[in-house]
Nucleic acid binder design. Sequence first.
DNA 1: CCTATTTTGTTGACTAAGCAACACGGGAGT
DNA 2: ACTCCCGTGTTGCTTAGTCAACAAAATAGG
Lengths: 190, 190
Amino acid sequence: MLPMEEKLDPRVKRTRTLILQSFSDLLAEKSFDAITVQDVTERAQINRATFYKKHFVDKYALLDYWVQHLFRQEIETRMLDVCHYTPDNLRILLLTVCEFLSKVRTDCKQSQRQFEPLIENQVKNQVYELLKTWLGKMNPSVSTEIPATVAAWAIYGLASHYSHAKKGLTLKAFVEEALPLVAVNLEQFA
Amino acid sequence: MLPMEEKLDPRVKRTRTLILQSFSDLLAEKSFDAITVQDVTERAQINRATFYKKHFVDKYALLDYWVQHLFRQEIETRMLDVCHYTPDNLRILLLTVCEFLSKVRTDCKQSQRQFEPLIENQVKNQVYELLKTWLGKMNPSVSTEIPATVAAWAIYGLASHYSHAKKGLTLKAFVEEALPLVAVNLEQFA
DNA sequence: CCTATTTTGTTGACTAAGCAACACGGGAGT
DNA sequence: ACTCCCGTGTTGCTTAGTCAACAAAATAGG
């Protein structure tokens, strides 16, 4: 899974960066539904044909990529060794998902039909993939799909719950309270 | 002459911008002599072959382009109508050359053999070309090369003098004092 | 001085990005 | 119903940028 895609053609890296930046800026101004591919490519100073031919099939693919990029960035700057399970990494993971949801909700113009569920899918997938690599290294003999699914849904659910009902409970306290319930699902494989 | 080159291929605009930015940064750290083309292209994330094939024959061409770009930018942001002579535009021109030299001297690591004369040539050329377009529109019937040469050298000389001996005289006062001497060379063509 | 290591330009084959043009479909009017 | 407009994907051709490799010049240093 991680780390971030490297040794990519420099041209590809450049235009992707431009597109991501343009898209981020637009999300701060308009709702996702109101953003067109033309908007994105115009602001990024990229030809629209290039957007389709070499990068994304449509604007939903761009949203996926955007979430993926942002989320991985957050994860990678916070974890020392992203690829192995530690109790601390699990804590960071839950914390990151909580803050990621909050950040998206504050940075982006809301009131959009499809936006939230698309985000949810992508984030949950990222968490799922990360947990699978962790579990695979803890105990290579057993199947990782089931416990990774359980934990991924639990983590996203917790983050969603926190970001909606964030009254009277600090994020830190919330994480400490919820963490053991998730950890027990994973540590039986250690 | 002016305005700045437009409707250029977007890719060309991008890589030139990257190269210029990289070069500016490096000039703040090293002397021009110590900067290699590799330095520039590496920092700009551009392939070295691209630098040569599509843009500059060597690093001296880059320096020329850099001066040209910076100088025109300064001029164009200060003058309302760059393409016509007015007494005020002439004042701005002299002022800009003075401040340009000061800026270059403070922003760039000095102690370089070739650097200063290369700058001088390029700036003087920019001034000369601008004056020629002014004169050509004031009186299309007479030759513009001689008076433009006189005024261009005078202006650069004044700026150089000021930036060396900037004791006890504000730039504004200096310009007001020197301006009429240059203006008389031009206004006889109005 | 001579050698070893950069840096310089240049080459040709390959790939990404630009551009103009197209057919298509979904509104918004009138 | 009917256009008219606008955003969507897609296409073929052109051009800019990448990459690895090269010979030649410049620099360093022992």
